[in-house]
Simulated assay, not measured.
Amino acid sequence: MDAFGDYIDINVHIMFTIYIADIIQRFFKTIVEYFKYKNHNSPENRLWTILGRAYCYNVPSRVLFFFIIVISIYRARFPPLHYLAYMPILWLYHCVNVPHSTLDYATFIRANHGLDSASSMAANYFHGYLKLTLPAYTNNPGIRERIYMYEQRHDVKFALNRLIILVPSQLFIKSKFESPYLEKAEPLPKVYLNRAGVNRPYQNDVYRFTKPINNRFYYMALEGATPILTFFETINFQPTSTKEILQMKREILLKFFKYLKKLVGDWPETEQETELIFYDDYKPNGEKQDIGEMLFNHFKSILLSKESSNSNNTFSTRASQHIESIHD
């Protein structure tokens, strides 16, 4: 038991020394921040703001430090002075960033803090476009109303009364979707919204399936996610491309899709107004994916399933009515 107790004491002393080294290192970062990056912090309470950021520990770190203090007071005591001689090794360890790997970038992107580029792209797309154009406002009809008016005026039927937004795995989106399964139709009516002092027109394209589903040619309000095309251009333009962003492009893409889906789904005015579809540009056999064929098969399955369900419900209702009439 004495050996185990000594082992605990040594580990507590080591951890205490690590925390002391960390506190000193954070103080050094505070000095650098205050003098080198002074203008990055607003003048009001600049020093306290920097100190608050420098000495902001997460909850597990604070809990661990609390237990180390308690054990030090009641058992291990504070570390002998010769332990402090090892602090420069810890500073060197952190200065050269030994623990870092590209997995840290992936972990950072996946975290829910809103500081990564994927979250920013999704939030800008949502607040600057989808949240403005999808819902109905006093002077402008929403996407559902515009689709309904389009159906009435042209005597057609949409596969889905929402805006369909495509997110491709390879990021690139053509200005026009080309496929034997699709043909471009007349767009939905424009809506005009005042944004930052400019009365901007917004318009959604419409495509028609060239092949019927249950003897009907369905239409769609369809477009690609424009921030993803911008992202594609960013990573393929030398002045804005970096090794890190190329390594993390799929992480950024997936975070964009998941976060945008969450934003759209959490906002009552948009949750039923759009359909996000993530798809692979290539099939499992390596063949290039035909967007029109992919969409046709996707909606054919949905529409046939819906019609089958409606038929079953109708049959069940008639059967129930028949049974009731027999009992009567």
Rank of each mutant, 00 (worst) to 15 (best):
3 A>M: 07
7 Y>D: 07
9 D>C: 12
11 N>L: 14
13 H>M: 14
23 I>E: 02
24 I>M: 07
28 F>Y: 13
29 K>T: 10
31 I>V: 06
35 F>N: 07
42 S>R: 11
43 P>I: 09
48 W>G: 09
55 Y>I: 08
56 C>R: 12
56 C>N: 10
59 V>L: 15
62 R>A: 07
63 V>W: 07
64 L>D: 05
65 F>H: 02
66 F>K: 03
72 S>D: 04
74 Y>R: 12
74 Y>Q: 12
76 A>C: 15
77 R>P: 10
80 P>W: 00
82 H>Y: 08
86 Y>G: 07
89 I>N: 05
93 Y>V: 08
95 C>M: 08
95 C>I: 10
96 V>R: 12
98 V>I: 12
103 L>N: 05
106 A>N: 13
107 T>W: 10
114 G>L: 05
118 A>H: 06
118 A>N: 12
119 S>R: 05
119 S>T: 11
119 S>W: 08
121 M>Q: 14
124 N>P: 10
128 G>K: 00
135 P>K: 04
135 P>W: 02
136 A>R: 11
140 N>M: 14
142 G>N: 00
143 I>M: 01
144 R>Y: 09
144 R>H: 11
147 I>V: 01
150 Y>L: 02
153 R>V: 03
154 H>Q: 06
155 D>G: 07
156 V>H: 10
159 A>K: 01
161 N>K: 15
164 I>F: 06
164 I>D: 04
165 I>P: 03
165 I>W: 00
170 Q>D: 15
171 L>V: 02
173 I>Q: 05
178 E>N: 11
189 P>K: 10
194 N>I: 08
195 R>M: 09
204 N>K: 09
204 N>D: 11
206 V>P: 10
207 Y>G: 03
207 Y>K: 04
212 P>E: 06
214 N>F: 00
214 N>I: 02
216 R>E: 14
220 M>H: 05
221 A>N: 01
227 P>G: 04
228 I>F: 00
230 T>D: 14
231 F>S: 01
234 T>N: 09
242 T>P: 06
242 T>H: 11
243 K>F: 05
245 I>Y: 06
247 Q>R: 12
251 E>T: 11
256 F>C: 01
256 F>H: 00
264 V>W: 02
277 I>Y: 01
289 Q>S: 14
289 Q>T: 15
290 D>N: 13
291 I>C: 08
292 G>V: 03
294 M>F: 15
295 L>A: 02
295 L>E: 03
305 S>N: 06
311 S>D: 14
313 N>V: 10
321 Q>V: 11
322 H>P: 07
327 H>V: 10
328 D>P: 08
